[in-house]
């Protein structure tokens, strides 16, 4: 949080069929529907999140990610970062307050990997869902499915990861927590954080810009990951891989797909990062183990199945 960027505050995902998407994100994953707008977008969140929403679903004829919003400390930070981005040669666009419901103005820009990021500082806070913030109970009793606690991070695929890392580090004050490099030292994957989390935004080098590998949600324990795996089987949900552990970040994980083919992850555990930590580096000769720590072999789907 060196420059006032706090966390990934929202992600807007495109889905082919809203009703099917809601069965998946609400009934299976346990996100809470918080609102809808006149464009038909649906606003969701994990129950522990204090802001009103963190996932926005938009029906479209091509799945994938529209943008990821990073929440900043305050409006003055937004102005400063906007000026810093422009000084670094990055074109920015201001989106008026209210375009996303109960959200203040957003500063949007495109990073070298082709993804649209935006900065915002103001969003209605409805508090943790189902529990107050005065003498709160441990958890609300009527959660559904996997009971996903929060939108945690996403993994984005696109070209020029090194330039993206430089921009996010120099201008937005993010840290490189973990990376994967080839024998020549070229950065093939970068896990960026603005917090103690192992990753807030992750990137993998890929020729086509703007692709989504997965959107990830946090669970409390390994047992919750196994319960999620049971629910994936019970509902015949499209499975990718897991339950297993990642080498990178060491999170305990399962990957699966929403009904439009966007990959999701639910995970537990994993490493932490402080701003004075050196990045953790994986060598590409250890790629299999870096991605899937138990199988130690990368499947083709991990590299080519994207939205």
């Amino acid at each position: 949080m060196k420059k006032g960027v706090m966390r990934p505050g929202h992600i807007q995902l495109r889905v082919l069929d809203m009703d099917e998407a809601l069965q998946h994100y609400v009934d299976l994953m346990g996100l809470i529907e918080m609102d809808r707008d006149e464009q038909g977008r649906v606003y969701l969140k994990g129950w522990t999140e204090v802001d009103k929403y963190s996932v926005v679903l938009r029906e479209a004829d091509q799945p994938g990610v529209d943008f990821v919003g990073l929440k900043c400390l305050d409006e003055a930070t937004l102005d400063r970062l906007n000026a810093d981005l422009q000084a670094a040669g990055v074109a920015t666009e201001e989106i008026a307050a209210g375009d996303l419901k109960e959200c203040g103005r957003r500063i949007a820009f495109t990073i070298p990997t082709g993804h649209r990021l935006e900065l915002f500082a103001t969003k209605q806070q409805t508090g943790k869902w189902g529990v107050g913030n005065r003498n709160p109970e441990a958890w609300p009793r009527d959660l559904k499915g996997m009971k996903a606690t929060r939108f945690d991070h996403c993994l984005l695929y696109g070209p020029d990861v090194p330039a993206t890392v430089k921009l996010l580090t120099d201008v937005l004050g993010m840290d490189l927590a973990e990376q994967l490099v080839d024998p020549e030292g070229k950065q093939l994957a970068a896990f960026m954080t603005v917090s103690m989390k192992a990753h807030d935004l992750a990137f993998i080098e890929h020729p086509e810009p703007g692709k989504l590998h997965h959107a990830s949600f946090y669970l409390d324990t390994w047992n919750d990951v196994l319960n999620a795996a049971d629910l994936i089987s019970m509902t015949d949900t499209s499975i990718d891989i897991g339950p297993t552990r990642h080498g990178l970040t060491h999170g305990q994980t399962i990957y699966f797909f929403d009904p439009s083919g966007n990959r999701n992850e639910v995970f537990a555990g994993g490493d932490y990062h402080y701003p004075d930590h050196e990045p953790v580096t994986w060598d590409s000769e250890q790629l299999g183990k870096a991605i899937f720590y138990h199988d130690r072999q990368l499947n083709e789907r991990f590299m080519t199945v994207l939205t």
Binding site: D182, L188, P207, Q286, G288, L298
Partner: peptide, 14 residues
């Protein structure tokens, strides 16, 4: 055809 940036990298290390 989905090109990747990883063609030279050995993906398995059993």
């Amino acid at each position: 055809e989905v090109a990747t940036s990883w063609s030279t990298v050995d993906r398995a290390n059993p």
